[in-house]
Simulated scan of single mutants.
Amino acid sequence: MLARGMLARLASEVPKTSTHNLSRVHLLQRRLFSNGLRAVSAGAGARVYNALLGYGKSYATAAATKPAPKAKKVVKKPAAKKPAAKKPAAKPAAKKAAPKKKPVKKVAKKKAVPKKAAKPKPKSKPRVKKTPEQLEKIKIKATKEHALSPPLLPGAVTAWNVFFSETLTGNHDRDPGTALKAASVKFKALTPAEKEHYNHLGNERTAAKRAEFEKWVRTHTPEQIRQANLARAWLRKKLTAPSARRRYVPLVDDRLLKMPASPYLRFSNERRATGDFKAIKVIEAVKLIAAEWKVLSDAEKKKYLDAYQAQRVEYEKKYLKTYGHAPGRKAAA
């Protein structure tokens, strides 16, 4: 009876037992059978057995047939955009204290002077080609500027010049021709003592005149005087009037260097100094001297050539020192 009651409670509690207690039920069943529960009817044992099997099957099928709950899809809602955090406004930099400006004195503005209207430029005249005569005049004018104009020329003042100037003093109303004739008659009638007096006055005036001329020459360089003499030589060839030829005589300057005489000129001067050609015309004397030069041997000509070469070397040294360049070359600009 005790065994039946236990089995009955076990059978009634089997459905409530969890799956992990099945092993214990089977173990209990074996023990019951081994402890004398053989008197238990076969039907009761079968019911207990079937109940245990049915519990296992019903549990398995229930677990298999019961559909698993569908997993709900979780749709994430888009997160609401958070308003952007406002950046804190930058603090304005502290202004540096501006340096104190010195008070500027106000200068009274000058009143603007109204500009004069520009005069229209005159139309340029078409260039006209100059004739050769006009070009020649322009060249002569430019050469006269290079020739220089001394205040006076260092010519000698004679006794006649002094006497004639005194005769004309205070007699401007007289005819020049008549005055000249009367002065010449009086000058011839002068005594030797009177002529000596006028010669003395002429020499004094000549010395004063030359001193004034030399003073003017010193205001120019030797190169300027040399260039002026070249211009004067060109003008004497171009201008045919006697007054122009007298006006543009060479300027005398002791600073100017004289070129050494050539060997032939040395021989000619030497022959003229002998006096063999007195009372002979110059042209005839030149022909005779040239014939004698041609007849001379090289040994006889050598002394004149050596003297010329020695003076030529000294001349080039002095020329370079005075003018700053060698003879025959243009001065540096």
Rank of each mutant, 00 (worst) to 15 (best):
M1V: 04
A8C: 12
L10W: 02
T17Q: 05
T19S: 12
N21A: 10
V25P: 02
H26G: 03
R30P: 00
N35A: 10
R38W: 13
R38S: 12
A42M: 14
G43Y: 08
A44K: 02
R47V: 02
Y49N: 11
Y49V: 04
G54Q: 14
A60Y: 10
T65Y: 03
A68D: 09
K70A: 06
A71R: 07
K72Q: 10
K72T: 12
K73F: 12
K76R: 15
A80F: 08
P83R: 07
K87Q: 07
A90N: 04
A90I: 02
A94R: 07
A97Y: 01
K100H: 06
K100A: 01
K101H: 08
P103V: 02
V104R: 06
K111H: 07
A112T: 08
P122G: 11
P122T: 12
P122R: 13
K130D: 11
P132C: 05
T143W: 02
S149R: 03
P150A: 07
V157R: 03
W160R: 04
V162E: 09
V162M: 14
F164H: 10
E166I: 04
T167S: 13
L168T: 05
L168M: 15
L168S: 06
L168H: 05
T169S: 11
T169R: 13
G170H: 08
N171F: 11
R174P: 06
A179F: 09
A179Y: 04
L180R: 09
L180P: 00
A182D: 10
K186G: 13
K186V: 08
F187S: 07
A189G: 12
A189S: 15
L190A: 05
T191P: 03
H197S: 13
Y198K: 01
H200M: 05
R205H: 08
R210E: 09
W216Q: 02
E223C: 00
E223D: 12
Q224F: 00
Q227N: 12
L230W: 12
K237F: 02
A244Q: 03
R247G: 04
V249A: 04
P250F: 09
D254E: 11
D254R: 03
P260H: 06
R271Q: 15
A273L: 10
G275S: 10
K281I: 04
E284F: 11
A291F: 08
E292W: 14
E292N: 15
K294V: 12
V295A: 07
V295T: 14
L296R: 06
S297T: 15
D298G: 02
K301F: 12
K303M: 12
K303N: 13
L305Y: 13
Y308W: 14
A310C: 08
Q311E: 13
R312A: 09
R312Y: 08
V313Q: 15
Y315L: 02
E316I: 00
Y319L: 01
T322R: 04
Y323W: 08
